[in-house]
Design a protein around this nucleic acid. Structure first.
Lengths: 304, 304
DNA sequence: CACGGGTCCGAAAATATCTTTCAGATGTGA
DNA sequence: TCACATCTGAAAGATATTTTCGGACCCGTG
């Protein structure tokens, strides 16, 4: 069997220096234990790790050279050598005056003002990570597909279901035929209707939500162009996805469920997708947006 | 010879990445012809050279590996490997020097990468604004009311409807009785059921969405504690609100409907409200969160 | 003009580093 | 518990870097 790891991102994602920290955060959950140790060490002390050889880093993290190389691959680099280069770059950037973001958990007895500050900061971080980790090539492909689609179906369950609805609502506003499906059975029965030229989009943070994967699989097998918006670019859902849009995965805690930051991340991706499509179809999207704005104005009371 | 550079590292310490260019200029005259070629190439295109192996750089400069290594030594590095790392650092610093102003609107012909950057930046700004403008006293009051409520109803239409659902979903997870109403008629008929001790929350960006104000009015008149989450702290909706949580109002443009940033803002407020309530009811919320997490895990296929 | 002393240079060997392979270890679901 | 798949590290294999070493070149001198 072929090595599944090496693929990483087939779409030729260039290894970037500044987005490395974001990538670590995004991909950490989909890593194995030893790889996480390596990733953590790398994220914690870029300068120190850049000075180490592959053997040295393996020793420091208590793993083997092979694992270090595998981690480098997962982070999108051809090998450890390149990761090391990026690490040096990151270290240099950090060196040149940057305040390290202080992220503490929210605890039960935090005053409200602090809760607000921490939540806002966290979501900002999530946005930055997502933007940094988003592959614009994949995004472009998804935009092209959606802009020319006969029909667009979006699948999502739970919190992701709301994101799916948000996307569908917006696409409808610019004159596209878009539906959000939050019921697994209905989703599948609708997916059967799809064919080449249609687009199916699955939104799942974990990348392994069966109820969402199933309709995507059906759509995929019926020839539709499929897009996965997920936090686990290696998850099962990507198996049936022509294009993969990666959301960031911030660490969660008891009082801050994963749903919170993943939702922020998903929404940003969805917004990007939407704006991209709106650009592409500006001829019709522009007037449509204006018209829907007009229509809404009449639902508002006039006072004040 | 005396060390004239500001490295502050006398002896065999590795030179900093930033002073590399200066070193090249200073030491160039004392170099041999071939070494000068190498030094020049390195100074002119750090990024490009960092990507080359010792053999590659030798070829590009028309010299040999040995010469490259000798040059690296002359510049103060133990070997080419370390010069290369410094080069990568330098490249990264130069790269990060460019901070493009993102204050402009998104236009039809923006490349996707820029769309992503602008959207992310904008939403970050929105979060900061919201956090800054949120009145923690009002928030505290709303939290207290919600934490002790017999029942919580949330009203929202369109994009705000999704936020309402998000809030209700989360509150349900920690064991509270919460419902989101997106149908105006049903919302009103349900609002009639409310009484003192219950909480009604209206979410409307414009503050003047009749379909949302009406149920809140009914709830208010039936004695429920009412909360308004709105971008217009003076809007009609506040007339029937005991507590007002203000969301930020970012400027909109044709390709970036107001719904986008207002949604981000609303979600942050809703999250704050939720976390506050979860803190307040930690006795029951903690276990409930853990339990719902457990339950979800089984809906996911095995990892990878 | 030839010669000797010095420096400079690069091909190839020697070493270090990185990558791949493979088989045992470990965990997971039926 | 067993079967299966995944994870992991030791060691072999491939690259890259460093060192070695002999020849080329420059230049002043006899």
């Amino acid at each position: 069997m072929k090595e599944i790891f090496g693929t990483g991102q087939p779409g030729g994602a260039p290894p970037a220096p500044a987005v490395l920290a974001a990538k670590v955060r995004t991909l950490a959950p989909s890593m194995t234990r030893s790889m996480q140790r390596v990733a953590e060490a790398v994220a914690k002390d870029p300068a120190g790790c850049a000075a180490l050889t592959v053997t040295g880093l393996a020793e420091r993290t208590g793993t083997s050279e092979a694992t270090v190389v595998r981690t480098a691959r997962l982070l999108g680099y051809p090998g450890y050598r390149d990761l090391r280069l990026a690490l040096a770059g990151l270290a240099a950037q950090q060196q040149s005056g940057r305040a390290p973001a202080l992220t503490t958990d929210i605890s039960v007895d935090d005053p409200l003002a602090e809760v607000v500050a921490k939540l806002a900061h966290d979501e900002q971080q999530t946005l930055a990570d997502t933007a940094a980790g988003l592959d614009t090539t994949q995004l472009g492909a998804a935009v092209t597909a959606a802009a020319g689609a006969r029909r667009i179906d979006v699948y999502g369950i739970g919190a992701s279901g709301l994101v799916a609805q948000d996307l569908a609502q917006k696409l409808l506003r610019i004159g596209l035929i878009a539906h959000a499906h939050t019921d697994p059975h209905l989703a599948v029965t609708n997916a059967v209707q799809l064919r080449s030229g249609d687009v199916a989009i699955a939104i799942t943070h974990s990348g392994s939500t069966g109820d969402v994967i199933e309709p995507l699989r059906v759509a995929f097998e019926h020839g539709a162009t499929t897009v996965a918006i997920t936090g686990r670019p290696n998850g099962p859902v990507t198996q049936y996805a022509d294009h993969i849009l990666t959301t960031s995965t911030a660490r969660e805690s008891e009082l801050r469920p994963a749903a919170m930051s993943s939702r922020t991340s998903q929404l940003l991706v969805v917004d990007c997708l939407f704006v991209g499509v709106a650009q592409r179809t500006y001829e019709t999207a522009g007037p449509a947006l204006a018209a829907s704005y007009e229509a809404l104005a009449h639902r508002h009371r006039q006072r004040r």
